[in-house]
């Protein structure tokens, strides 16, 4: 089942089109990467999911029915532009924000206490936010995002400004939340973390969705017949044969082995390569190299922009 379904959503601002008939589905229980260059329309889409703004046309379904105001109770949102009331005490503020999400005061208090204990930050409770360091503030902010135990989380650039330790902590949290059954939309420019955490992705460019699907499927979809082959030792015959029949992209000579990156020409498959090499040398390892999300992102966005140059801002 899809927790969120976006149907043909269009949003126009006074001087530009922010979303152009965008449709996408987020299956329940996944981490969904929402990708796209700056200004592509990600923030607008996120705001529409949060019911901060509303689409000009199209519709949004939450758990199978049209989204409604009260659904904010089940949604947690960590915006890219983060902020808390500077003068307000950390604990008081977190409870206030949870109450605005519909949680009652007592439950909010209990959960927050537990959460603060877990992070070992109980002594921050009565300190005004402005006295906390940036990293501390981000922790408090993240806690306030999940305090009402949302089943659907939207995290916009959650890792920006986090040090490696806190980044890891956050990744663990995301992992835990997923295990508990939450669905998470992750909007980020950090492609490494997308590969690490996301199950599904959608790529938005120039107000349109240009790619959507399972991360592995997409990577296979864009694979370029590139393989990595490691053999026991180099012989001139092998080198010659590979150069003649295949396309060697790179050769990496290691102390006791050689590693080739090989592109298979049209019409040849992995078995052909193995069969060709087998008579000459020992094969130590052989595997297909899938394109990275980074490569796919850049390639897709650039080719789209070349096809639609007039719309570029």
């Amino acid at each position: 089942m899809n927790i969120i379904e976006v149907h043909e959503v269009t949003k126009r601002y006074s001087n530009h089109l922010a979303l152009d008939r965008v449709s996408l589905s987020v299956p329940e229980g996944v981490v969904f990467g929402l990708l796209g260059p700056n200004g592509a329309g990600k923030t607008t889409l996120i705001r529409i999911l949060n019911q901060i703004t509303f689409p000009d046309s199209g519709s949004v379904y939450f758990k199978g029915r049209p989204i409604e105001a009260d659904d904010v109770r089940q949604i947690g949102y960590l915006p890219e532009e983060r902020g808390l009331y500077k003068k307000m005490k950390a604990g008081e503020q977190a409870i206030y924000l949870a109450q605005l999400k519909g949680l009652d005061r007592e439950t909010a208090f209990k959960r927050l206490r537990k959460k603060f204990q877990q992070y070992d930050i109980l002594d921050w409770w009565n300190r005004p936010v402005e006295e906390l360091s940036k990293g501390m503030q981000q922790k408090v902010q993240f806690i306030t995002t999940i305090l009402h135990e949302p089943s659907f989380l939207i995290l916009d650039e959650p890792f920006s400004g986090f040090d490696p330790i806190n980044t890891n902590l956050l990744k663990e949290e995301i992992h835990n939340l997923k295990k508990q059954g939450a669905t998470i939309i992750l909007s980020t420019h950090n492609m490494a973390s997308v590969e690490e955490i996301c199950d599904e992705i959608a790529l938005i460019n120039q107000s349109q969705k240009i790619l959507e699907g399972n991360l592995y499927d997409i990577k296979t979809q864009f694979k370029k017949n590139v393989f990595s082959l490691e053999i026991g030792g180099e012989t001139t015959e092998v080198t010659q044969m590979l150069a003649e029949q295949f396309e060697v992209l790179a050769t990496n000579r290691l102390p006791h082995s050689v590693q080739y990156t090989i592109h298979l020409p049209e019409g040849k498959c992995a078995n052909d390569l193995l069969a060709a090499v087998m008579p000459y040398v020992n094969i130590l390892s052989f595997n297909e190299i899938l394109p990275t999300m980074n490569e796919i992102f850049i390639e897709q966005v650039e080719s789209f922009n070349q096809a639609h140059p007039h719309e570029q801002q």
């Binding site: 949060n50 901060i52 949604i75 949102y77 902020g83 808390l84 009331y85 500077k86 924000l97 999400k101």
Partner: peptide, 15 residues
Amino acid sequence: EEKTNRIVEVLVSSV
């Protein structure tokens, strides 16, 4: 204050 703090975005996602 709410605007420059950027807290407004969190607030309007709740109310």
